[in-house]
Amino acid sequence: MRCLLRYLSGRRHYKKGKSLIMGVGKLPREPFNVIVTGVGGQGSVMLSRVLANMLVMEGFRVTVGETFGASQRGGSVMSHLRISEAYTWSPQIPKGCADIIVALEPIEVIRILPSYINKNVLVLSNTRPIYPVGVIAGESSYPSLEEIKKCVERLVCKAWFIDATDEAVKMGNSILGNIVLLGALSALEALPLRRSFFRDVISEMVTEDNVSLNLAVYDRGVELIKQDFDFRV
């Protein structure tokens, strides 16, 4: 798992000037940029909130920019997380500056990748497609998961595709696909994410009897990534 640090040690490609903020220790880059993307109604806003709160507990300054409103109605949604040691960054990640893309819906990775890609970007994606109404109507077509994987893997540093929704359905509620992904994200160890902070944050957001289910689903996400690593080793 240590090998991941290699992915994260690269410098951003832009010209380094006298920075307003210098990275100190806990983050591989300053700021560290995470994009959470998906389709309205999938729980991407919830995912980015939980993630951001966990990071705030860890002591970071976090800015989360979100698109919702009209886009909630079946449109693409995206949250931008700027994670910093000491600074409030803009709620929009500049083009070419994503460090991790977490996608609740696979095609959304390819939708945003051309804008936010750089050679160090990591991708963690759900496999379950949500077909746009244009695809349902037969006006456009949706690539196969294999095509999507092939395209993403050609372009990014490292990509993980997990059956987050399917796992969540198995565990009782499809909407918890977002928490499977969050667990998986923590297992990448690209960011310092503590399970105990997840418990604290989620306890504030869901009813008491749902906390243990959320924790179990989070753990399942961790497992899915660990399996993947074990398989590779």
Partner: peptide
Amino acid sequence: KVEEATKACVVPPRELSFC
């Protein structure tokens, strides 16, 4: 490289719709 790779994987638009 991105242009090349996404040629084979065209992203369908996701227009607004009722839930």
